[in-house]
């Protein structure tokens, strides 16, 4: 109940969830950049990433690994999550978006298709893995590493923040330094002209979905094992919608904005919990979203559709 006394107790978890939102928000913002469309099913990419890593870890990983093996299995889990997420996002684009894109369908049609795909995916996951939360296998004992002003920082939090930062830096490099990144930026700026300049639009869009899926799936793993400790079929809903709020907060279409927005949202959300109580923590994100839309709909960093940097 006293925020200032325990500021760091709320700040560190806020930073953790925030970096998670930031990674998911990048997926929204990337797709928004190239298609001008909210990918409603991105939360399901996140969920599938969580389940994918859960299946791989529970089938392959040994009981309570320790030392170096835990590190290996954390990395394996993350890669598994990222791959399943990428696969889901790829399939999603091919099944639910590409036919509509070829037909030049109106936006409403896209959104309904997206919500249908999302509904389909999470209910299918509910059928495949049951509708109750499934616990993630434990990979190590979650001990304290060091403390910040008396607040302990756990291994998990370090892993989440560290890998999120690594992913964000990697993505920034990919988008700004590679040829594919130039293609993504070109399609985001003006798809038609990019096509005339020899950019394969279909390929770029597909790859954008894959990149978003890699990040979303890895985030699904991190969330499942680090924050909630379990995965269930609707796990994607809240983080997904909050990450979208984060993307809007930072300025949709703007990758660095999405990162900043995610971090801010996570911190604000966690700092609000001692003020209003933990059961209202989810409401905060939506209130922030509506406030941002009311007062600064272009987000903090401004919408920079195309100049995705």
């Amino acid at each position: 109940m006293n925020l200032f006394h325990n500021f760091w107790d709320y700040f560190i978890p806020g930073l953790t969830t925030g970096s998670m939102y930031a990674v998911i928000a990048i997926g929204y913002t990337l797709v928004y950049g190239v298609l001008q469309l909210i990918n409603f099913a991105h939360s399901e990419v996140f969920m599938m990433g969580g389940f994918g890593s859960l299946v791989v870890l529970s089938e392959l990983a040994p009981q309570s690994p320790h030392g170096f093996t835990s590190v290996v299995w954390v990395i394996v889990g993350m890669i598994a999550g990222a791959l399943v997420g990428a696969l889901t996002a790829f399939g999603l684009e091919k099944a639910a978006y590409k036919p509509l894109r070829k037909r030049n369908a109106p936006k409403l049609v896209f959104l309904i298709s997206a919500i249908g795909a999302s509904f389909f995916l999470y209910n299918l996951a509910g059928k495949l893995w049951g509708r109750n939360p499934v616990p993630m296998p434990e990979l190590y004992t979650n001990g304290e590493v060091f403390s910040v002003f008396g607040t302990p920082v756990k291994i998990t939090q370090l892993i989440i923040i560290g890998s999120a930062v690594a992913m964000m830096i990697g993505l920034d490099l990919v988008v700004n330094r590679t040829k594919m990144g130039a293609g993504i930026r070109a399609v985001a700026q003006d798809a038609e002209t990019a096509g005339l300049m020899g950019v394969d639009i279909d390929k770029i869009i597909s790859r954008t979905f894959i990149i978003g899926g890699l990040l979303g799936g890895a985030a699904g793993f991190l969330y499942g094992f680090g924050i909630s400790g379990q995965v269930w079929f609707t796990v994607g809903f809240l983080p997904g919608i909050k990450a979208f709020a984060a993307a809007v907060l930072g300025g949709i279409g703007n990758i660095r904005g999405a990162m900043l927005g995610g971090l801010l949202l996570g911190i604000v959300e966690n700092l609000s919990s001692p003020l209003f109580g933990t059961q209202w923590i989810d409401v905060t994100a939506f209130v922030v979203l509506i406030l941002v839309l009311m007062f600064r709909p272009t987000g903090i960093m401004g919408e920079r559709l195309g100049r995705s940097a």
Partner: peptide, 20 residues
């Protein structure tokens, strides 16, 4: 009973592709 949601989700996508 729970499975109908899967079919409804698929139905939405199929309708949007073939008969919006």
């Amino acid at each position: 009973e729970q499975d109908r949601f899967i079919y409804l989700g698929a139905l939405l996508v199929i309708m949007m592709i073939f008969r919006p």
